[in-house]
Write a protein that binds this DNA or RNA. Structure first.
Lengths: 197, 197
DNA sequence: CCGGAAGTGTCAGTGACTGTCAATCATTGC
DNA sequence: GCAATGATTGACAGTCACTGACACTTCCGG
């Protein structure tokens, strides 16, 4: 078991991103629902069956990048100092998301993805499901750090609240990408838990 | 346009609930994904085509009751006094949910539904999508009450935070239905916004 | 008795996704 | 250099959710 990424996995990633790029341009042009998997596969130059060997579902083509961002978030959160209030740790864990929006290149890409997601209820549902999964992971990370004295339900709710801020701040992004960072700070300051720590 | 419910709509509702009852028992017995629409239709005694005349999708059979609860929530929220802090209004709007869990009959039913939803990623996604839609409605209700001086993004985040508490409190319910009310109070007290109102 | 409205069954079709099998292609051991 | 081996692929068939079209029945007012 060498490093985490073998030679094969690298080429697999290459094919995946080739598929993703092709698919996304089709989605932008025709819409998500209106683009069939057959079309995507044909555009890439492979069979439909092979498409499903690289992505478990049509949704995953769009949501794949999100999964990697999620892992990043979880790592960041776990690396925060143990004494730090949870709310602050969560805000800091979101930094890579803010940074992404600072980069003009990925910004346009992300905004396009966001528009594709919002345009299809089916995709939106999948997207929310992934966010849900991510929240469970982050809650677990927080729980390990806090020890047994913390209330897991409250922890879960706190992570959910932080994500609500993130999600709400993503809305104005379609119009003004620069608004994201300040928006997140504003909402997370406004929702900062007052009573309990 | 007489009253909201004509004679025909009543019988339609009757058929819908007959389908829903039949389907749910099948879901409990075999699981959601493993139960086909054909089986449900056959069990009810109708064609597959007719099933889709009563429910737009297989998901909707399970999530239908949620939609009606959602309308109730929105009405309650709109009826709260204008001066009341948003967080408190949201907590009070959730009262009917708590009440439902107080009733031993609907409690068992709801717990079963919750288990079905958790058992299928596909259904969970649909469920979260409905919650998302509900949150938009409640945000709108809050926005109308607050006037133009309120920050819509913060309002959206606040509704999301309250739903995070609701969602988190629904988790221990599978084991102990009585825990829901206290759990909700605890999480919403812990997450109560401290800085801005 | 007749007209239309509403509900239903049947059938055919689309699109996402899966299982299977045979062919191909690169790698490895000899 | 070559054969065994394992991974990758395409082709094909099948399942399942869902939709559109059409024909048929029933019921109800005129």
């Amino acid at each position: 078991m060498a490093a985490g990424t073998s030679l094969r996995e690298v080429s697999r990633r290459a094919v995946q991103s080739r598929i993703a790029r092709t698919a996304e341009s089709l989605f932008v042009a025709k819409g998500f629902e209106e683009t069939t998997v057959d079309e995507i596969a044909a555009a890439v130059g492979m069979s439909q069956r092979s498409f499903f060997r690289y992505f478990a579902s049509k949704d995953e083509v769009v949501l794949d990048s999100l999964a990697r961002l999620g892992e990043d978030l979880a790592e960041r959160l776990a690396a925060r100092p143990p004494g730090e209030p949870e709310w602050d740790s969560l805000r800091r864990a979101f930094d890579p998301v803010v940074e992404r929006f600072g980069d003009p290149v990925s910004r346009g890409h992300d905004a396009a993805i966001q528009r594709i997601i919002d345009g299809s209820p089916r995709l939106l549902a999948s997207y929310l499901c992934r966010l849900e999964h991510l929240q469970r992971m982050l809650t677990e990370a927080l729980r390990e750090r806090a020890g047994d004295d913390a209330d897991p339900v409250v922890l879960r709710a706190m992570v959910g609240g932080a994500f609500a801020c993130l999600h709400a701040s993503a809305f104005p992004v379609v119009d003004d990408p620069d608004a994201f960072g300040p928006c997140l700070d504003r909402t997370m300051a406004a929702l900062r838990p007052g009573a309990a720590r």
